[in-house]
Design a protein around this nucleic acid. Sequence first.
DNA 1: TCATACATTGTACAGTGTACAACGTACGGA
DNA 2: TCCGTACGTTGTACACTGTACAATGTATGA
Lengths: 227, 227
Amino acid sequence: MSVEQLVTAALALADEQGLAAVTTRALAEKVGISAMSVYTYVPGKPELLDLMVDAVYLAMPRPSWRSRSWRTRLTRVAESNRDLLRAHPWLTEVAALSRPPLGPGVMAKYEHELAAYDGTGLGDVDTDAALSYLLGFVQAHCRAAHDAARASTDSAVSDADWWAANQPILARAFDPETYPRAVRIGSAAGQAQGSAWDADRAWRFGLARTLDGLAALIDRPPAPRGG
Amino acid sequence: MSVEQLVTAALALADEQGLAAVTTRALAEKVGISAMSVYTYVPGKPELLDLMVDAVYLAMPRPSWRSRSWRTRLTRVAESNRDLLRAHPWLTEVAALSRPPLGPGVMAKYEHELAAYDGTGLGDVDTDAALSYLLGFVQAHCRAAHDAARASTDSAVSDADWWAANQPILARAFDPETYPRAVRIGSAAGQAQGSAWDADRAWRFGLARTLDGLAALIDRPPAPRGG
DNA sequence: TCATACATTGTACAGTGTACAACGTACGGA
DNA sequence: TCCGTACGTTGTACACTGTACAATGTATGA
Protein backbone atom coordinates (compact mmCIF):
# COMPACT_ATOMS: atom_id res chain seq x y z
CA MET A 1 0.00 0.00 0.00
CA SER A 2 1.20 3.49 -0.72
CA VAL A 3 -0.03 7.05 -0.74
CA GLU A 4 -0.19 6.97 -4.53
CA GLN A 5 -2.50 3.98 -4.54
CA LEU A 6 -4.70 5.64 -1.99
CA VAL A 7 -4.93 8.82 -4.02
CA THR A 8 -5.63 6.86 -7.20
CA ALA A 9 -8.44 4.98 -5.50
CA ALA A 10 -9.85 8.18 -4.06
CA LEU A 11 -9.80 9.77 -7.52
CA ALA A 12 -11.69 6.82 -8.95
CA LEU A 13 -14.33 7.14 -6.24
CA ALA A 14 -14.70 10.88 -6.75
CA ASP A 15 -14.84 10.67 -10.55
CA GLU A 16 -17.35 7.83 -10.61
CA GLN A 17 -19.63 8.60 -7.71
CA GLY A 18 -18.89 12.18 -6.71
CA LEU A 19 -16.96 13.77 -3.92
CA ALA A 20 -19.42 12.61 -1.29
CA ALA A 21 -18.50 9.01 -2.09
CA VAL A 22 -14.93 9.63 -0.97
CA THR A 23 -15.35 8.53 2.63
CA THR A 24 -12.68 7.07 4.84
CA ARG A 25 -14.45 3.73 5.01
CA ALA A 26 -15.25 3.48 1.31
CA LEU A 27 -11.69 4.37 0.38
CA ALA A 28 -10.29 1.85 2.84
CA GLU A 29 -12.51 -0.91 1.52
CA LYS A 30 -11.58 -0.11 -2.07
CA VAL A 31 -7.88 -0.61 -1.38
CA GLY A 32 -8.44 -3.47 1.02
CA ILE A 33 -7.39 -2.02 4.35
CA SER A 34 -9.30 -0.94 7.40
CA ALA A 35 -10.70 2.53 7.78
CA MET A 36 -8.19 3.62 10.36
CA SER A 37 -5.23 2.40 8.37
CA VAL A 38 -5.86 5.23 5.96
CA TYR A 39 -4.43 7.50 8.62
CA THR A 40 -1.12 5.70 8.37
CA TYR A 41 -0.59 7.18 4.95
CA VAL A 42 -2.47 10.45 5.16
CA PRO A 43 -2.83 12.74 8.19
CA GLY A 44 -6.50 13.45 7.52
CA LYS A 45 -9.14 14.08 4.94
CA PRO A 46 -8.12 17.64 3.98
CA GLU A 47 -4.64 16.44 3.13
CA LEU A 48 -6.10 13.64 1.03
CA LEU A 49 -8.10 16.17 -0.95
CA ASP A 50 -4.98 18.29 -1.45
CA LEU A 51 -3.19 15.27 -2.84
CA MET A 52 -6.08 14.52 -5.17
CA VAL A 53 -6.04 18.06 -6.53
CA ASP A 54 -2.31 18.04 -7.07
CA ALA A 55 -2.50 14.65 -8.79
CA VAL A 56 -5.07 15.69 -11.40
CA TYR A 57 -3.19 18.93 -12.02
CA LEU A 58 0.01 16.99 -12.57
CA ALA A 59 -1.68 14.76 -15.12
CA MET A 60 -2.90 17.64 -17.32
CA PRO A 61 -1.52 17.86 -20.83
CA ARG A 62 0.99 20.67 -21.33
CA PRO A 63 1.36 21.34 -25.03
CA SER A 64 3.96 23.85 -26.09
CA TRP A 65 2.68 27.34 -26.82
CA ARG A 66 3.45 27.57 -30.46
CA SER A 67 0.61 29.85 -31.45
CA ARG A 68 1.51 33.49 -31.93
CA SER A 69 -1.87 34.82 -30.89
CA TRP A 70 -2.40 35.25 -27.18
CA ARG A 71 -6.13 34.77 -27.72
CA THR A 72 -5.52 31.31 -29.09
CA ARG A 73 -3.21 30.45 -26.24
CA LEU A 74 -5.58 31.68 -23.55
CA THR A 75 -8.44 29.88 -25.24
CA ARG A 76 -6.47 26.67 -24.96
CA VAL A 77 -5.79 27.36 -21.28
CA ALA A 78 -9.48 27.89 -20.70
CA GLU A 79 -10.48 24.81 -22.67
CA SER A 80 -8.02 22.52 -20.97
CA ASN A 81 -9.26 23.70 -17.60
CA ARG A 82 -12.83 23.19 -18.72
CA ASP A 83 -11.93 19.67 -19.83
CA LEU A 84 -10.32 19.04 -16.47
CA LEU A 85 -13.35 20.24 -14.54
CA ARG A 86 -15.64 18.21 -16.76
CA ALA A 87 -13.66 15.07 -16.09
CA HIS A 88 -13.45 15.83 -12.36
CA PRO A 89 -16.50 17.88 -11.40
CA TRP A 90 -15.65 17.53 -7.72
CA LEU A 91 -12.73 19.91 -8.30
CA THR A 92 -15.07 22.88 -8.21
CA GLU A 93 -16.07 21.91 -4.69
CA VAL A 94 -12.51 21.61 -3.48
CA ALA A 95 -10.04 23.73 -5.42
CA ALA A 96 -9.07 26.88 -3.56
CA LEU A 97 -7.39 29.77 -5.29
CA SER A 98 -5.68 31.10 -2.18
CA ARG A 99 -3.06 29.00 -0.45
CA PRO A 100 -3.25 26.17 -2.93
CA PRO A 101 -1.55 22.91 -1.97
CA LEU A 102 1.94 23.68 -3.20
CA GLY A 103 2.70 20.33 -4.76
CA PRO A 104 4.45 19.56 -8.03
CA GLY A 105 1.18 19.40 -9.94
CA VAL A 106 0.08 22.84 -8.82
CA MET A 107 3.47 24.31 -9.62
CA ALA A 108 3.69 22.71 -13.05
CA LYS A 109 0.19 23.85 -13.96
CA TYR A 110 0.89 27.38 -12.75
CA GLU A 111 4.15 27.58 -14.67
CA HIS A 112 2.65 26.27 -17.87
CA GLU A 113 -0.32 28.59 -17.78
CA LEU A 114 1.81 31.60 -16.96
CA ALA A 115 3.86 30.78 -20.03
CA ALA A 116 0.75 31.29 -22.14
CA TYR A 117 0.97 34.97 -21.22
CA ASP A 118 4.49 35.33 -22.60
CA GLY A 119 4.62 38.15 -25.09
CA THR A 120 1.47 39.86 -23.89
CA GLY A 121 3.54 42.66 -22.41
CA LEU A 122 1.83 42.35 -19.05
CA GLY A 123 3.84 42.87 -15.88
CA ASP A 124 4.27 40.13 -13.32
CA VAL A 125 1.46 41.21 -11.04
CA ASP A 126 -0.95 41.78 -13.91
CA THR A 127 -0.07 38.44 -15.45
CA ASP A 128 -0.90 36.68 -12.22
CA ALA A 129 -4.15 38.63 -11.91
CA ALA A 130 -5.07 37.93 -15.52
CA LEU A 131 -4.52 34.21 -15.08
CA SER A 132 -6.57 34.12 -11.89
CA TYR A 133 -9.30 36.02 -13.70
CA LEU A 134 -9.39 33.58 -16.59
CA LEU A 135 -9.39 30.55 -14.31
CA GLY A 136 -12.07 32.16 -12.18
CA PHE A 137 -14.35 32.39 -15.18
CA VAL A 138 -13.75 28.76 -16.11
CA GLN A 139 -14.40 27.59 -12.59
CA ALA A 140 -17.57 29.64 -12.23
CA HIS A 141 -18.84 28.37 -15.58
CA CYS A 142 -18.10 24.73 -14.81
CA ARG A 143 -19.66 24.97 -11.39
CA ALA A 144 -22.84 26.31 -12.96
CA ALA A 145 -22.76 23.69 -15.70
CA HIS A 146 -22.22 20.96 -13.16
CA ASP A 147 -25.08 22.21 -11.01
CA ALA A 148 -27.34 22.34 -14.03
CA ALA A 149 -26.41 18.84 -15.12
CA ARG A 150 -26.94 17.50 -11.64
CA ALA A 151 -30.33 19.18 -11.40
CA SER A 152 -31.40 17.49 -14.62
CA THR A 153 -30.04 14.12 -13.58
CA ASP A 154 -31.26 14.06 -10.01
CA SER A 155 -34.82 14.98 -10.63
CA ALA A 156 -35.28 12.70 -13.62
CA VAL A 157 -37.19 15.49 -15.33
CA SER A 158 -35.25 17.09 -18.15
CA ASP A 159 -34.45 20.76 -18.05
CA ALA A 160 -36.67 21.44 -21.04
CA ASP A 161 -39.60 19.59 -19.48
CA TRP A 162 -39.13 21.37 -16.19
CA TRP A 163 -39.09 24.70 -17.92
CA ALA A 164 -42.09 23.89 -20.06
CA ALA A 165 -44.01 22.66 -17.06
CA ASN A 166 -43.19 25.63 -14.87
CA GLN A 167 -43.55 28.31 -17.46
CA PRO A 168 -47.36 28.53 -17.45
CA ILE A 169 -47.43 28.46 -13.67
CA LEU A 170 -44.85 31.19 -13.52
CA ALA A 171 -46.68 33.23 -16.07
CA ARG A 172 -49.76 33.11 -13.89
CA ALA A 173 -48.05 33.58 -10.55
CA PHE A 174 -45.80 36.41 -11.60
CA ASP A 175 -47.72 38.76 -13.75
CA PRO A 176 -45.81 40.67 -16.38
CA GLU A 177 -46.81 43.99 -14.89
CA THR A 178 -44.73 43.62 -11.75
CA TYR A 179 -41.90 41.68 -13.38
CA PRO A 180 -42.04 42.70 -17.05
CA ARG A 181 -38.39 42.06 -17.91
CA ALA A 182 -38.05 38.92 -15.82
CA VAL A 183 -41.03 37.26 -17.44
CA ARG A 184 -40.17 38.34 -20.99
CA ILE A 185 -36.44 37.75 -20.88
CA GLY A 186 -36.67 34.69 -18.70
CA SER A 187 -39.00 32.91 -21.06
CA ALA A 188 -37.14 34.22 -24.09
CA ALA A 189 -33.90 32.79 -22.77
CA GLY A 190 -35.57 29.57 -21.74
CA GLN A 191 -37.29 29.18 -25.09
CA ALA A 192 -34.21 30.03 -27.12
CA GLN A 193 -32.13 27.51 -25.31
CA GLY A 194 -34.71 24.83 -24.70
CA SER A 195 -33.85 25.12 -21.05
CA ALA A 196 -33.20 27.65 -18.35
CA TRP A 197 -29.49 27.52 -18.95
CA ASP A 198 -27.47 26.37 -21.93
CA ALA A 199 -23.93 25.40 -21.09
CA ASP A 200 -22.36 25.68 -24.53
CA ARG A 201 -23.91 29.04 -25.25
CA ALA A 202 -22.84 30.38 -21.86
CA TRP A 203 -19.33 29.10 -22.45
CA ARG A 204 -18.93 30.78 -25.82
CA PHE A 205 -20.46 34.00 -24.54
CA GLY A 206 -18.38 34.07 -21.37
CA LEU A 207 -15.10 33.15 -22.97
CA ALA A 208 -15.50 35.78 -25.66
CA ARG A 209 -16.32 38.41 -23.02
CA THR A 210 -13.40 37.35 -20.85
CA LEU A 211 -10.91 37.52 -23.69
CA ASP A 212 -12.31 40.85 -24.85
CA GLY A 213 -11.89 42.14 -21.32
CA LEU A 214 -8.27 41.06 -21.23
CA ALA A 215 -7.74 42.49 -24.69
CA ALA A 216 -8.54 45.91 -23.29
CA LEU A 217 -5.48 45.46 -21.12
CA ILE A 218 -3.18 43.61 -23.51
CA ASP A 219 -3.91 45.21 -26.85
CA ARG A 220 -3.53 48.78 -25.71
CA PRO A 221 -6.44 51.09 -26.44
CA PRO A 222 -5.98 52.28 -30.00
CA ALA A 223 -4.69 55.76 -29.25
CA PRO A 224 -5.59 56.92 -32.71
CA ARG A 225 -2.38 57.65 -34.46
CA GLY A 226 -0.77 60.19 -32.17
CA GLY A 227 -0.24 58.76 -28.68
CA MET B 1 -43.89 29.56 15.40
CA SER B 2 -43.86 30.22 11.70
CA VAL B 3 -41.81 29.53 8.62
CA GLU B 4 -40.55 33.12 8.66
CA GLN B 5 -39.23 32.79 12.19
CA LEU B 6 -37.50 29.56 11.26
CA VAL B 7 -35.87 31.11 8.23
CA THR B 8 -34.80 34.15 10.24
CA ALA B 9 -33.23 31.95 12.88
CA ALA B 10 -31.51 29.85 10.22
CA LEU B 11 -30.12 33.01 8.62
CA ALA B 12 -28.73 34.15 11.96
CA LEU B 13 -27.03 30.81 12.44
CA ALA B 14 -25.55 30.81 8.95
CA ASP B 15 -24.37 34.41 9.12
CA GLU B 16 -22.78 34.07 12.54
CA GLN B 17 -21.34 30.58 12.48
CA GLY B 18 -21.35 29.47 8.87
CA LEU B 19 -23.56 27.18 6.86
CA ALA B 20 -22.35 24.11 8.71
CA ALA B 21 -23.92 25.47 11.89
CA VAL B 22 -27.36 25.32 10.31
CA THR B 23 -28.33 21.88 11.56
CA THR B 24 -31.81 20.70 12.26
CA ARG B 25 -31.11 20.38 15.95
CA ALA B 26 -29.36 23.71 16.35
CA LEU B 27 -32.12 25.48 14.48
CA ALA B 28 -34.79 23.77 16.55
CA GLU B 29 -33.07 24.69 19.79
CA LYS B 30 -32.66 28.29 18.70
CA VAL B 31 -36.37 28.73 18.17
CA GLY B 32 -37.33 26.57 21.12
CA ILE B 33 -38.90 23.54 19.49
CA SER B 34 -37.79 19.98 19.03
CA ALA B 35 -35.70 18.88 16.11
CA MET B 36 -38.49 17.02 14.41
CA SER B 37 -40.93 19.89 14.71
CA VAL B 38 -38.89 21.71 12.12
CA TYR B 39 -40.41 19.34 9.60
CA THR B 40 -43.83 20.68 10.40
CA TYR B 41 -42.93 23.95 8.74
CA VAL B 42 -40.41 22.88 6.15
CA PRO B 43 -40.37 19.66 4.10
CA GLY B 44 -36.62 19.20 4.44
CA LYS B 45 -33.27 20.85 4.54
CA PRO B 46 -32.98 21.70 0.82
CA GLU B 47 -36.25 23.61 0.98
CA LEU B 48 -35.01 25.48 4.03
CA LEU B 49 -31.93 26.56 2.12
CA ASP B 50 -34.10 27.69 -0.79
CA LEU B 51 -36.14 29.83 1.57
CA MET B 52 -32.99 31.33 3.07
CA VAL B 53 -31.70 32.27 -0.36
CA ASP B 54 -34.97 33.82 -1.41
CA ALA B 55 -35.19 35.75 1.86
CA VAL B 56 -31.80 37.44 1.54
CA TYR B 57 -32.49 38.21 -2.12
CA LEU B 58 -35.78 39.81 -1.16
CA ALA B 59 -34.08 42.02 1.42
CA MET B 60 -31.57 43.48 -1.04
CA PRO B 61 -31.77 47.22 -1.70
CA ARG B 62 -33.19 48.10 -5.10
CA PRO B 63 -32.28 51.67 -5.90
CA SER B 64 -33.69 53.15 -9.06
CA TRP B 65 -31.38 53.17 -12.06
CA ARG B 66 -30.98 56.85 -12.56
CA SER B 67 -27.46 56.80 -13.92
CA ARG B 68 -27.14 57.17 -17.67
CA SER B 69 -23.98 55.12 -17.95
CA TRP B 70 -24.45 51.39 -18.18
CA ARG B 71 -21.00 50.93 -16.67
CA THR B 72 -22.10 52.73 -13.54
CA ARG B 73 -25.27 50.72 -13.34
CA LEU B 74 -23.55 47.38 -13.81
CA THR B 75 -20.91 48.39 -11.29
CA ARG B 76 -23.68 48.95 -8.79
CA VAL B 77 -25.17 45.56 -9.60
CA ALA B 78 -21.80 43.94 -9.02
CA GLU B 79 -21.14 45.84 -5.82
CA SER B 80 -24.50 45.11 -4.29
CA ASN B 81 -24.03 41.44 -5.04
CA ARG B 82 -20.56 41.58 -3.54
CA ASP B 83 -22.01 43.22 -0.44
CA LEU B 84 -24.62 40.51 -0.25
CA LEU B 85 -22.07 37.73 -0.52
CA ARG B 86 -19.86 39.43 2.04
CA ALA B 87 -22.72 39.63 4.50
CA HIS B 88 -23.78 36.05 3.77
CA PRO B 89 -20.71 34.08 2.68
CA TRP B 90 -22.65 30.83 2.81
CA LEU B 91 -24.53 31.95 -0.30
CA THR B 92 -21.60 30.93 -2.48
CA GLU B 93 -21.98 27.38 -1.21
CA VAL B 94 -25.68 27.24 -1.93
CA ALA B 95 -26.84 29.55 -4.69
CA ALA B 96 -27.41 27.74 -7.95
CA LEU B 97 -27.69 29.57 -11.24
CA SER B 98 -29.81 26.94 -12.95
CA ARG B 99 -33.27 26.21 -11.67
CA PRO B 100 -33.16 28.79 -8.91
CA PRO B 101 -35.86 28.65 -6.26
CA LEU B 102 -38.51 30.73 -8.00
CA GLY B 103 -39.63 32.77 -5.00
CA PRO B 104 -40.51 36.46 -4.83
CA GLY B 105 -36.98 37.38 -3.77
CA VAL B 106 -35.37 35.68 -6.73
CA MET B 107 -37.87 37.22 -9.12
CA ALA B 108 -37.51 40.73 -7.70
CA LYS B 109 -33.73 40.54 -7.82
CA TYR B 110 -33.77 39.21 -11.37
CA GLU B 111 -36.16 41.91 -12.53
CA HIS B 112 -34.21 44.70 -10.90
CA GLU B 113 -30.87 43.58 -12.27
CA LEU B 114 -32.26 43.08 -15.76
CA ALA B 115 -33.47 46.66 -15.59
CA ALA B 116 -29.87 47.78 -15.20
CA TYR B 117 -29.36 46.63 -18.79
CA ASP B 118 -32.08 48.87 -20.15
CA GLY B 119 -30.71 51.00 -22.92
CA THR B 120 -27.72 48.84 -23.65
CA GLY B 121 -29.27 47.74 -26.88
CA LEU B 122 -28.78 44.08 -26.08
CA GLY B 123 -31.38 41.54 -27.11
CA ASP B 124 -33.26 39.47 -24.57
CA VAL B 125 -31.05 36.42 -24.77
CA ASP B 126 -27.85 38.45 -24.66
CA THR B 127 -29.13 40.48 -21.73
CA ASP B 128 -29.76 37.32 -19.78
CA ALA B 129 -26.35 35.96 -20.70
CA ALA B 130 -24.63 39.23 -19.81
CA LEU B 131 -26.28 39.31 -16.41
CA SER B 132 -25.33 35.71 -15.70
CA TYR B 133 -21.80 36.50 -16.76
CA LEU B 134 -21.53 39.48 -14.44
CA LEU B 135 -23.01 37.59 -11.50
CA GLY B 136 -20.73 34.68 -12.25
CA PHE B 137 -17.71 36.91 -11.87
CA VAL B 138 -18.97 38.31 -8.58
CA GLN B 139 -19.70 34.87 -7.24
CA ALA B 140 -16.33 33.47 -8.26
CA HIS B 141 -14.55 36.44 -6.74
CA CYS B 142 -16.43 36.26 -3.47
CA ARG B 143 -15.91 32.55 -3.20
CA ALA B 144 -12.18 33.04 -3.58
CA ALA B 145 -12.18 35.93 -1.13
CA HIS B 146 -14.16 33.91 1.34
CA ASP B 147 -11.80 30.97 1.01
CA ALA B 148 -8.82 33.23 1.50
CA ALA B 149 -10.33 34.85 4.56
CA ARG B 150 -11.22 31.50 6.05
CA ALA B 151 -7.71 30.20 5.43
CA SER B 152 -6.28 33.15 7.32
CA THR B 153 -8.75 32.85 10.16
CA ASP B 154 -8.68 29.11 10.60
CA SER B 155 -4.97 28.63 10.76
CA ALA B 156 -4.35 31.59 13.09
CA VAL B 157 -1.34 32.46 10.94
CA SER B 158 -1.90 35.55 8.82
CA ASP B 159 -1.63 35.35 5.08
CA ALA B 160 1.44 37.55 5.04
CA ASP B 161 3.17 35.44 7.68
CA TRP B 162 2.30 32.23 5.92
CA TRP B 163 3.65 33.57 2.66
CA ALA B 164 6.80 34.90 4.29
CA ALA B 165 7.38 31.62 6.07
CA ASN B 166 6.81 29.45 3.01
CA GLN B 167 8.60 31.59 0.50
CA PRO B 168 12.17 30.52 1.41
CA ILE B 169 11.13 26.89 1.54
CA LEU B 170 9.46 27.21 -1.83
CA ALA B 171 12.45 28.98 -3.28
CA ARG B 172 14.59 26.03 -2.26
CA ALA B 173 12.19 23.28 -3.18
CA PHE B 174 11.21 24.65 -6.56
CA ASP B 175 14.25 25.94 -8.30
CA PRO B 176 13.75 28.81 -10.71
CA GLU B 177 15.17 26.78 -13.56
CA THR B 178 12.27 24.36 -13.78
CA TYR B 179 9.61 26.87 -12.79
CA PRO B 180 11.05 30.24 -13.77
CA ARG B 181 7.78 32.11 -14.22
CA ALA B 182 6.01 30.52 -11.30
CA VAL B 183 8.77 31.42 -8.87
CA ARG B 184 9.27 34.93 -10.20
CA ILE B 185 5.65 35.90 -10.71
CA GLY B 186 4.41 34.04 -7.67
CA SER B 187 6.77 35.83 -5.34
CA ALA B 188 6.25 39.13 -7.15
CA ALA B 189 2.53 38.86 -6.72
CA GLY B 190 2.88 37.71 -3.14
CA GLN B 191 5.30 40.49 -2.29
CA ALA B 192 3.30 43.20 -4.02
CA GLN B 193 0.17 42.25 -2.17
CA GLY B 194 1.64 41.20 1.16
CA SER B 195 -0.11 37.91 0.66
CA ALA B 196 -0.78 35.27 -1.94
CA TRP B 197 -4.04 36.87 -2.90
CA ASP B 198 -5.34 40.38 -2.42
CA ALA B 199 -9.11 40.63 -2.51
CA ASP B 200 -9.48 44.34 -3.26
CA ARG B 201 -6.94 44.28 -6.04
CA ALA B 202 -8.52 41.21 -7.59
CA TRP B 203 -11.93 42.84 -7.39
CA ARG B 204 -10.87 46.01 -9.15
CA PHE B 205 -8.98 44.06 -11.78
CA GLY B 206 -11.77 41.58 -12.39
CA LEU B 207 -14.59 44.09 -12.48
CA ALA B 208 -12.71 46.31 -14.93
CA ARG B 209 -12.03 43.32 -17.18
CA THR B 210 -15.62 42.13 -16.97
CA LEU B 211 -17.03 45.51 -17.88
CA ASP B 212 -14.52 45.91 -20.68
CA GLY B 213 -15.56 42.53 -21.97
CA LEU B 214 -19.21 43.52 -21.99
CA ALA B 215 -18.30 46.85 -23.56
CA ALA B 216 -17.05 44.97 -26.60
CA LEU B 217 -20.62 43.75 -26.99
CA ILE B 218 -22.54 46.85 -25.91
CA ASP B 219 -20.49 49.72 -27.27
CA ARG B 220 -20.22 48.44 -30.80
CA PRO B 221 -16.70 48.24 -32.17
CA PRO B 222 -15.83 51.80 -33.20
CA ALA B 223 -16.20 51.40 -36.94
CA PRO B 224 -14.04 54.40 -37.54
CA ARG B 225 -16.19 57.12 -38.95
CA GLY B 226 -17.85 55.45 -41.85
CA GLY B 227 -19.86 52.44 -40.63
C1' DT C 1 -68.45 14.83 25.89
C1' DC C 2 -66.29 12.73 22.47
C1' DA C 3 -63.88 11.79 17.90
C1' DT C 4 -60.85 13.41 14.92
C1' DA C 5 -56.99 15.81 13.15
C1' DC C 6 -52.76 17.69 13.69
C1' DA C 7 -48.60 19.74 16.02
C1' DT C 8 -45.05 17.96 18.69
C1' DT C 9 -41.92 14.79 20.52
C1' DG C 10 -38.42 10.85 21.70
C1' DT C 11 -36.28 7.24 19.80
C1' DA C 12 -33.79 5.09 16.25
C1' DC C 13 -30.97 4.32 12.07
C1' DA C 14 -27.41 4.70 8.81
C1' DG C 15 -24.09 7.52 7.88
C1' DT C 16 -19.62 10.81 8.69
C1' DG C 17 -14.43 11.80 10.49
C1' DT C 18 -11.34 10.36 13.65
C1' DA C 19 -9.50 9.60 18.84
C1' DC C 20 -8.01 5.80 21.48
C1' DA C 21 -6.27 1.55 23.01
C1' DA C 22 -5.20 -3.07 21.89
C1' DC C 23 -2.92 -6.24 18.89
C1' DG C 24 0.37 -8.55 15.62
C1' DT C 25 4.64 -8.51 13.65
C1' DA C 26 9.20 -7.21 11.92
C1' DC C 27 13.67 -5.90 13.23
C1' DG C 28 18.16 -4.55 15.89
C1' DG C 29 20.98 -5.97 19.71
C1' DA C 30 22.54 -9.43 23.21
C1' DT D 1 18.10 -17.72 19.67
C1' DC D 2 15.66 -14.62 22.47
C1' DC D 3 13.75 -10.33 23.58
C1' DG D 4 12.47 -5.17 23.74
C1' DT D 5 10.96 -1.85 20.96
C1' DA D 6 8.73 0.38 17.41
C1' DC D 7 5.31 0.59 14.22
C1' DG D 8 1.53 -0.80 10.93
C1' DT D 9 -3.09 -2.32 11.58
C1' DT D 10 -7.42 -2.91 13.62
C1' DG D 11 -12.07 -2.76 16.31
C1' DT D 12 -14.50 -0.03 19.10
C1' DA D 13 -16.36 4.25 20.42
C1' DC D 14 -17.91 9.14 20.30
C1' DA D 15 -20.16 13.11 18.77
C1' DC D 16 -22.40 14.55 15.03
C1' DT D 17 -25.60 14.73 10.70
C1' DG D 18 -30.64 14.36 8.33
C1' DT D 19 -34.79 12.35 8.89
C1' DA D 20 -38.22 7.98 9.17
C1' DC D 21 -41.41 6.26 12.42
C1' DA D 22 -44.54 5.73 16.10
C1' DA D 23 -46.35 7.63 20.19
C1' DT D 24 -47.98 11.48 22.71
C1' DG D 25 -50.35 15.62 23.64
C1' DT D 26 -53.80 19.10 22.48
C1' DA D 27 -57.11 21.89 20.14
C1' DT D 28 -61.33 21.97 17.59
C1' DG D 29 -65.96 20.80 15.58
C1' DA D 30 -70.15 17.80 16.25
